[in-house]
Design a protein around this nucleic acid. Structure first.
Lengths: 238, 238
DNA sequence: ACTGATTTGTGCGTATGTATC
DNA sequence: TGATACATACGCACAAATCAG
């Protein structure tokens, strides 16, 4: 089978794929126009299009009518399941992932938040805003609400440890679980676009979730906004 | 606790919430400007803004700087898990949900599809496009790939039964399971916007998934594009 | 709001190579 | 050998979306 003769469009597809994976064409950057590629490969535009179709299906490129084709930014995988944790999640992929503190305060819960956490309205909660980074790219901003009772110095502890999981263990919570996730998509707000360092308004994946401790008691309610094209949520059934 | 005195902003919030939930303000329609609301309630604009903030947190309204506030279209819940099926899923909520046939053919699988289904490249697969409707609103368009071997008349069967689950049972597949789901968000293409009957380009939730039969063999690979603001995917852990 | 240039999307026609019966 | 079917590749034309002025 080795040295099998490849068709023209397959050779073009493979060469462009190598150019992309080798870094000649960088993620986010436009690919040459079909006309230019036709000249480069001395092939018909239809043949170029056949190759481009495959690149799209391989998830390497995206093309828009009237605009052209761009190299897709390979999205990071974000595993979502019973034991979803950002730090464990992305370091698995050696992505040098970190979360960064943005803002924290003790506030009184809105009705919506109180209901989700099973608290009485206006109960005191720790409110923490953070953003997540992987390979130098912002991938999410998150707002988290944790009941203030029993964890009165959580914000200070979080600032020191830099991780909610570690902060919980400081308070004796050895393990916790994702109870549910509710996922929608919408356009980013101006503030979200700023935090995610997006040039323009882009779609965000909005995940509203509840984490519970080992006894099943609500531990943390949060709303995470993922940059739509930099993250791929993976829900794997066992 | 009954008859507890409510603050002014809480009364305004509750009255507006009743207006929205009662249908005075319809989903998708703009709410009165803050100035108009201030006049109606004889309250200061700041007080109106305090109430609006809660409405946003309750998921009832959305406001954009310079434009105003609109009533959020309450998204349908779409349960996602091991036994995800559209027909069972939405009829639970009495949403009069149906899926509609768009296009079907036997094609040869692209490399990407063949890989996911564990077939050799260019193997024959049934290709079915459909869209889903709930309460008269388009909620998704889906492209599905099912190996052609063993299910040679699948498309004809599907046209008659109107359901993939029923079509599978015709071929003796009594049950099947969701192996994984991969979720991203992006802008809808022109064609997707048309199928989803969107006025403008809007974000879509893209779910790439694999269903397997009871023996664990790949049964159906598909890409579903949900209208971002009309659907909320729910991943519930047990 | 309009115009023209650029770029991708689509359709049809033609010719050629290859596999099958 | 011939007939047929199918995929590949090129040529040409026009539609549709985008963008700069």
């Amino acid at each position: 089978m080795a040295g099998m003769k490849l068709l023209l469009w397959q050779r073009i597809r493979d060469e462009l794929a190598r150019d992309i994976q080798g870094g000649t064409f960088r993620p986010g950057e436009p690919l040459p126009t079909e006309k230019e590629l036709a000249a480069r490969f001395s092939a018909h535009r239809h043949t170029i299009r056949r190759a481009m179709r495959e690149l799209r299906e391989m998830g390497l490129a995206r093309t828009d009518q009237g605009r052209g084709s761009v190299v897709i930014e390979q999205p990071f995988e974000y595993q979502m399941g019973r034991r979803t944790r950002f730090s464990e999640n992305m370091s698995l992929h050696e992505l040098s992932a970190r979360s960064h503190f943005l803002y924290g305060d003790v506030i009184s819960a809105s009705e919506h938040v109180a209901k989700r956490l099973g608290l009485r309205p206006r109960a005191r909660v720790n409110y923490i805003e953070m953003y997540g980074e992987a390979q130098g790219k912002r991938v999410f901003v998150a707002s988290q609400y944790i009941p203030h009772a029993n964890m009165e110095e959580l914000i200070a502890v979080f600032k020191k440890t830099g991780s909610l999981t570690k902060s919980y263990s400081y308070y004796g919570v050895r393990d916790y679980f994702r109870k549910y996730s509710r996922i929608t998509a919408r356009m980013s707000s101006a503030e979200e676009a700023r935090h995610l360092q997006l040039a323009h308004r882009q779609p965000v994946l909005v995940v509203e979730y509840l984490n519970v401790d080992q006894s099943g008691a609500p531990l943390e309610f949060g709303i995470t906004r993922f940059c739509g094209d930099r993250i791929e949520l993976v829900v794997e059934e066992k």
